[in-house]
């Protein structure tokens, strides 16, 4: 009888400690993963910022308003680079929007010059761009999922008590919803347009 009276509170304490440790570990490891996913977004945006000027270079001979496009790209690239270094994901995506503004001009050139579009270099750059934008969206999704998991633990009882005890702050994650500004190379883009005369 005495034993069980002592035993029950002990069991409860052990259970609570185990729970607290697991929540603490979850929150900390998720924080690390959130950082890593932001890093991944940054890496991919940097890669994209190298690919797009290359694509622009490939179309150089066909460009009419060369200079403006190229200075824009150089500026945007610098902006992305500094945003990635700052680790602020919102800044990164804003800088990226600027880079993306160059895409319509490049696309127009590609569409009006089928032989250029069919060249190995351009094809290779285009599929790398598609892949990069896929990677950005996967990394964004991971960031959104991880932030949601993390923030949920901070508000839901009883994990919020442990989070408060150790002073965990909510993660910002992604504020802006995914915009349609990505370069989407759909299947219809890669086939030559059918013209009925």
């Amino acid at each position: 009888m005495m034993l069980s009276i002592l035993f029950i509170p002990l069991l409860v304490i052990v259970g609570v400690v185990f729970y607290a440790v697991s929540i603490y570990n979850f929150l900390n490891s998720t924080k690390v993963r959130i950082k890593a996913s932001i890093q991944e977004i940054g890496n991919q945006l940097k890669r994209q910022a190298e690919l797009i000027p290359n694509l622009a270079n490939a179309t150089k001979g066909y460009m009419e308003h060369e200079q403006t496009v190229f200075t824009k790209l150089t500026d945007a690239r610098k902006l992305i680079s500094s945003a990635v270094d700052s680790g602020d994901v919102e800044k990164m995506l804003q800088a990226n929007e600027q880079m993306m503004q160059a895409m319509p001009a490049i696309r127009v050139v590609l569409e009006s010059n089928p032989e250029l579009k069919a060249s190995d270099l351009v094809k290779d750059l285009m599929r790398n761009l598609t892949d990069t934008s896929d990677k950005v969206s996967y990394a964004r999704r991971l960031l959104i999922d991880l932030t949601a998991d993390y923030n949920q633990k901070l508000v839901v009882f009883p994990s919020n008590m442990i989070a408060n005890m150790f002073g965990f702050k909510p993660e910002v994650g992604l504020k802006t919803p995914e915009s349609g500004q990505h370069i989407e190379v759909s299947e219809s883009d890669t086939v030559t347009p059918q013209i009925n005369i």
Binding site: R33, E40, D131, D134, K135, Y138, A139, R141, L142
Partner: peptide, 11 residues
Amino acid sequence: TVVENISIGTG
């Protein structure tokens, strides 16, 4: 690259 991407998205 597709496998690489899914790995990024899922951990």
